[in-house]
Amino acid sequence: MSQQKPQTVQTTGHVWDEDLQEYNNPLPSWWLMGFYATVVMSLIYWMIYPAWPVGKHFTTGFGTVTYVNDKGVEKSPHWSTRAQLMKDMNEAEKLQKPYFDKVAATSFEQISKDPELTSFVNSAGKAIFSDNCAPCHQSGGQGKVGYFPNLADDDWLYGGSHDKIQETIAKGRNGYMPAFKEVLSSEQLDNLAHYVASLSGEKADAARVRAGDALFHGDAAACYYCHDNSGKGRQVIGSANLTDKIWLWADVPAQDSAEDKVAAIRQVIANGLNRGVMPAWETRLKPEQIKLLTAYVHALGGGAK
């Protein structure tokens, strides 16, 4: 500690409770200079940036931001966070543009053969997928049985070609199956469920399978109309392939007994589906982003020709 210099300090002149006084120490000059500097700064700030309201408008300041708008026209309005954003986006777009242009100009087949483009598709695609697709289809595209289809396998409701995937992303999809409990008896629903189980090789009652077969291909239930005579579904309308072991709505593989597997199928036939809605992304994503995402989803593992 340095020795305190003896000094005479004035008091404020107030006296409380007979003898309580207050020293009047002036502010240090460095502090005071700092304070005046902030006042000067605020004046400069007012002149550069939008600051004071004046009637129905406000002072916009002399500062400007230069950006290039969507139409390629350069603009220099007064400084604002919105103009600054346009400028920031310009910088990002400038860096990504060569790659997006190349993706847009290259066929899907060529993209997968170009290591540089593939690496761009994988990194940019992962970002877009995580933000937009992962909440439903999960982070690896593995989907969720009972809710959202797996994108990493080679089973596709609406088709797994590049074109079909692109169409699905851009336009969205609407899954629908009528509730057959409205038109079929409980017995008929049982028979159908047994038949559908048998299509993918699950254990089923032979007599019920025969009866269900007739219903499936007959006019009472007319399942063949959507799921095709073969039961393999029609990708044009997004009806499921019933002959494979992959299930979206009825969680057949998770059931232990043959009865429970049939019951899971019966439940879907009885109640139908008014779900399976995929939103349309063309209003949210740019065409080149959708193309890139298509390549990404196709490459998740199950892309078809």
Partner: peptide
Amino acid sequence: MKYSNDWHVQHLIDPKSMVP
């Protein structure tokens, strides 16, 4: 309109089932 109604319903019932 970013996600389906179905997603919202399931997500509100149990968020972790949709977003681990």
